Simulated scan of single mutants.
Amino acid sequence: MNLLARLFSALTLVALICAIWVALLPQRPTTPDRLPSDQTTLTGPVDRILIEKSARKMTAFRDGAALKTYRIALGFAPEGDKSQQGDGKTPEGIFRIDRRNDASAYHLSLGIDYPQAEDRARAAAEDIDPGGDIFIHGQPNQLPRGILLPGDWTAGCIAISNAEIGELFAATAIGTEVEIRP
């Protein structure tokens, strides 16, 4: 197993242990950095998703109207645009959902078409790997039901709860626009 895979596995294990420990603590009031998503239920198709990294929120739209807003987790180094494999950044720009995976290592996932041609060209000019496999997904499958990993913990993806990805997955088709802002 390569070093990056071992590091990611170790970080996932540490995050899992922390999540279980946090779940066993007495319930505390919601803090500003862990605000719940809005309580509406997403129904019907989504035609656009807006992700605002600095606000840690994702909003689903249909015909220009906001349908639901979610609290999100990002890559472990979320500041700035993704430039290469392993940098822990979530890419910025306008993308499309290009695949749906109901058998992923995370509870459901919607693939984003990163890297795009300009990302691959830039990476080739710099002789680096631009990375890839960026998804909107739920929590790791090995986590107990209802547990949310705290903070920004992905390798560059956008994570929400399992219940939330379930409703978003059902409402989002391949080709849906995804805009990711700083």
Score class of each variant (00 low, 15 high):
I94N: 08
I128A: 13
P144L: 11
I134V: 15
D119G: 03
R145D: 14
S161W: 09
A73R: 01
L4F: 11
I72N: 05
P91Q: 08
A15F: 04
A123Q: 06
L11S: 13
Q85N: 14
L13E: 12
Y114W: 01
T12R: 13
D38A: 10
T90A: 04
A65E: 15
G156W: 02
P32H: 14
F76K: 13
W153N: 00
G93N: 01
T41H: 10
A170Y: 02
A159D: 03
S9G: 06
A60V: 00
R48M: 10
E177M: 14
D133Y: 03
I51F: 09
D113G: 05
G88P: 04
I128H: 08
L74M: 07
Q85L: 15
S109Y: 07
G166W: 00
G151N: 08
C18G: 06
W21H: 09
R56E: 06
T31H: 14
Q116P: 07
L42Y: 00
L7Y: 11
D87K: 06
G156H: 04
T176I: 03
C157D: 02
P26C: 13
R28P: 08
G151F: 09
P182A: 15
L16A: 12
A123C: 09
A60W: 00
A123T: 03
A55R: 11
H137N: 08
R28Y: 12
L149H: 02
T172R: 07
I180S: 05
T40M: 05
T31G: 12
N162A: 08
A173G: 13
T41Y: 05
D81C: 01
R145S: 15
I51K: 04
I51P: 05
N101W: 06
L50S: 03
Q84H: 07
D129F: 03
L110T: 11
A65W: 09
K89L: 03
F76P: 00
D152K: 03
D47L: 03
G93Q: 00
A60M: 01
N141T: 12
L4K: 12
L74V: 03
F169E: 13
R6E: 15
R62M: 14
R122D: 10
Q116K: 15
H137R: 08
G86M: 05
L42Q: 01
R28F: 13
Q139M: 15
L24T: 09
D38C: 12
A19V: 07
F61Y: 15
G64W: 02
A124S: 12
T59S: 12
E177V: 15
Q139P: 06
H137C: 08
W21S: 08
G138Q: 02
A155R: 01
A77F: 11
F135M: 08
P91I: 05
R120E: 09
I17A: 10
I128Y: 10
P130T: 02
E167H: 02
Q39V: 06
E79S: 07
I158Y: 02
E177F: 10
D133W: 02
A159Y: 01
A60R: 00
D133I: 00
I158G: 00
T69V: 11
I160A: 02
E179T: 04
I51M: 10
L25S: 09
E179K: 02
V46Q: 01
A171D: 07
E79G: 01
R34L: 09
A66R: 12
A10V: 09
D38E: 15
T172D: 07
Q142A: 14
R122W: 15
D133K: 07
G64L: 07
I165Q: 06
T172A: 09
G156C: 12
D119F: 01
E179V: 04
D98K: 03
A171K: 11
R62T: 11
L42K: 00
D129Q: 06
